[in-house]
Structures are given as C-alpha cells and as structure tokens.
Amino acid sequence: MRKAIPYGKQHISEADIAAVVATLQADFLTQGPTVAAFEAAFANYVGAKYAVAVANGTAALHLCALALNVNQQTRVITTPITFVASANCIRYCGGEIVFADVDPNTILLDTNLVRQMLESKPAGYYAGLIPVDFGGNPVNLQELRELADQHNLWIIEDACHAPGGFFYDSDGTKQMCGNGNFADLSIFSFHPVKHIATGEGGMITTNNEALYNKLLLYRTHGITKDPELMQENHGPWYMEMQELGYNYRIPDILCALGLSQLQRAEEGLTRRKAIARTYDQAFKDVAGLGVVQTEAAALGAADDTGHAYHLYIIRVQNRQGLYEHLRRHQIYAQVHYIPAHTMPYYRNLGYKPGDFPVAEKYYSECLSLPMYPTLTEEEQLFVIEKVKEFVFNGR
C-alpha cells in the first residue's frame, strides 16, 4: 500500500538526534551556550550582524513590533496572503494593520499599490511595511527600501519561508533574505515543515545594534543582568526588570537541533530546487494549470534561482476538485493561504470579501504540492501523474 504524501515534512537525521542527546547530557537545557552558538551560525548563514533566537516565528514578529515601538497610533502595511501572524503582531501592540493587494504573477506585496497608498496620505500616516517572502519567493527589498526611505518607514521582512533565499540588487550583488541590508528586522520560523526544523522556534536577524539590544531585553521578561545597564547593583545575584518583556526564550535542546539542521541547509535547499525544476518541466505545457512565478522570472530575468521553495504552488480553476482528487490518492496537498482580511477577526475591523480581488482570485485557485527534501523521485512522479490525470480528464 502506498504511504501518504504530505505537502511538507521534517527530516531528522542521526546527527540531529546525537546533537540533541548531547545537549540533554550537558549542563544546560535552556539559557545555555547552544543558544548563542545557533544565533551566531544562523547570522553567518544569512549574512547579518546579529541574530536572536526565540520561541517561534510569531514571538519573533511580536518582539520586532515591540522593538520598533508599535502602539495605538501606528499604521503598518502588509499583504493579505500570509499566515495571520504577519498581521497579528501589530495588533498585539494595539497598532492598525492596513492590507495591500498582491502582484498577480508573484503573489508578493504589490509595490506599485503600496506606493499609491503612501502617496495618498500625509507624511507620517504610515509607520512601516511587513513584506513576506511568500513560499520562499524573495521580495526585492531594495525597491521597497527606497520607497520606505522616501516616507520614513521601517521594514520587517517576514522571511519564515525563505532561509537561504536571495535576490540580486541593481548592482548585480546577491542579497540574502534576512541579511539586514534593506530590512530593519527580519524573522524566520523553524516549524517542522520549514527548511530548518526545531519543533518550534524562530529567529530575528538585524544589522541594527540598538534594535538587537532591545530584542535581547524583551525576549527575557525585560530583565537584564548586565552591570553596565543596571540602574542599581546589589550584588552578583542582582537583576533588573527595565521593560515589560516576555518569556520568548528558546531552549538549548531545540537550538542543538537547529544547529545540526543548519549544517545541511544548503543540501536541503538544493534538493528543493531540483524538485521545483521537475514540477516546472512537467507542468510547463499543461493547459489550465498555472504556476506562481518568481519575481525575477516575472521581470524576464534568466537567473531566478534565489527562490527558497518552502512551497511549490500551482493554480487551477477547479481547486476543490483537484484537492479532493489528490486526497483520494493519499496526496495531502494544502492551501496557502486564506486571505487574512477575510478572517472573522479582521472582518470585525471593517474588512470584507472583495477588498483585494487579486489575493482572493489567487486563493480560489492555489494549491501547494508536496515539497520537502526527502520526497522521492517516485513519489513526485506519482503526484505529477495524479495532477495531470485530473487536469486532463477532470477526475
């Protein structure tokens, strides 16, 4: 009997298990040296100066909003095609989320629409942008940075789907997702279906030392033990709570797993790209079936290899039918994402279906096919066979 094929899946190796066991046998299960080691290795991987490991990607987003002083007067623009945490982090701090529609080819935040929104309001109306490297498709942050600078905005890059992803700037320089050259802060997730799995976990990267120090403070209850930062010092035991922070720490156990997984991150990324190319080749001439483009490809560039391929997304008119057809054959494709503005919570804030037609049309057609490094050639060919079977025969 053929085993089920999920859309995403973690890969835990013997080296991963050994790394976690070694940490379990060491002195620290949490707040120990493995956390700092993982942070340093990850910062080096994406090319950023600083990295802060946290409990999960949502905690990372919340800490970024706190560090940027988001409050009830803050308005921030983001995309409706994302996991809701990208928007919720602003609401946690009392700020207002303003959605902008997506580009119909790349499904990334539409820069032209964002420009129009900014130009239609007085200076200072908006405070920031949260672009999302959706599916691993890297946003051109240079273009957004220029726009943000014109309007005095900060940028949080949601790169949860894109560790190892990159784009080329106007000088032809390779710019890694999360390297801090254009975004003030970038965030990543280590959920099991992501490139690097720690069970739960997240990371924030930045090149801004002041923001980095804020993140460290907010991550641990707003408490510091640094004598140079304390207002008083009663002795070696003393600590000060200087801000209202949170317990968003990540244990050494999970960081040990993350460090081990990071060592083969490029291997996994190479395999993801190979899977994507096989899908591309199989579907390129199939009428009635579309594929979400990379931004580079949409602009006609020859090299679009910067896509990190967390997801491989196709578009088909009868999405419901294809979804059910695949499930009958134990292929568990998934839908990413239900537009955030159509969720009851955001409807209660005034949004409604019809507000962002490009995002809503995309949602009605999208389906994420199995994409993970341990997907076998045989399994992928079976997925392709069943997709084509439905598209050609309508069953």
Results as ranks from 00 to 15, higher is better:
R277E: 14
A51R: 08
H234K: 14
V358Y: 07
H195M: 13
C160V: 12
D280S: 10
I204K: 06
A287H: 14
K273D: 00
G235R: 09
R327W: 14
Q380W: 03
Y168P: 02
A297I: 04
A59Y: 09
L381F: 08
N140I: 08
T106Q: 07
A287G: 15
Q142P: 03
G94Q: 05
W154Y: 14
C89D: 01
A59I: 00
Y346D: 11
L211R: 02
R75F: 02
S86P: 00
D252T: 07
E389Q: 15
E228R: 15
I223K: 12
N208F: 00
L113V: 12
E379Q: 15
N207V: 02
I384V: 13
Y372K: 08
R347A: 09
K386C: 07
N88Q: 13
L144E: 05
T270Y: 08
I384H: 09
D280N: 15
Y309E: 08
A15K: 15
F382T: 11
F38I: 07
K214Q: 14
E324K: 14
H221Q: 12
L254D: 11
E385Y: 12
I313W: 03
R315F: 00
P131M: 07
E378K: 13
V335T: 13
F28Y: 15
N179A: 08
V76A: 01
M1Q: 11
D103W: 04
Q317S: 13
M203C: 11
H310Y: 14
K194N: 13
T78Q: 04
L322Q: 12
E119I: 01
Q320I: 12
E266W: 02
A15W: 06
F134H: 10
P373D: 13
Y345C: 00
L68K: 03
L349I: 02
L254S: 14
S189M: 02
V84L: 00
P138F: 01
V54G: 07
L153Y: 08
Q242E: 10
R249L: 09
F390S: 12
G172C: 10
G135Q: 01
T74W: 03
I12Q: 04
N152V: 11
N71A: 06
H62L: 10
K9F: 09
L375T: 05
A298W: 03
A297P: 00
E146R: 15
R219K: 15
I97D: 01
T34I: 13
E240N: 08
R75A: 10
A183T: 08
H336P: 00
E243Y: 01
L262N: 08
Q242A: 10
P80Q: 07
H329F: 14
Q142I: 04
Q334I: 11
Y7V: 09
R145Y: 11
E209N: 06
N44V: 00
I331W: 08
R271S: 01
A210F: 02
Y238F: 15
L289G: 10
E200G: 04
A162D: 03
N181A: 12
A41E: 15
T278W: 01
N105F: 12
A297V: 03
F83T: 13
E96Y: 01
V358G: 05
L68N: 05
R249A: 11
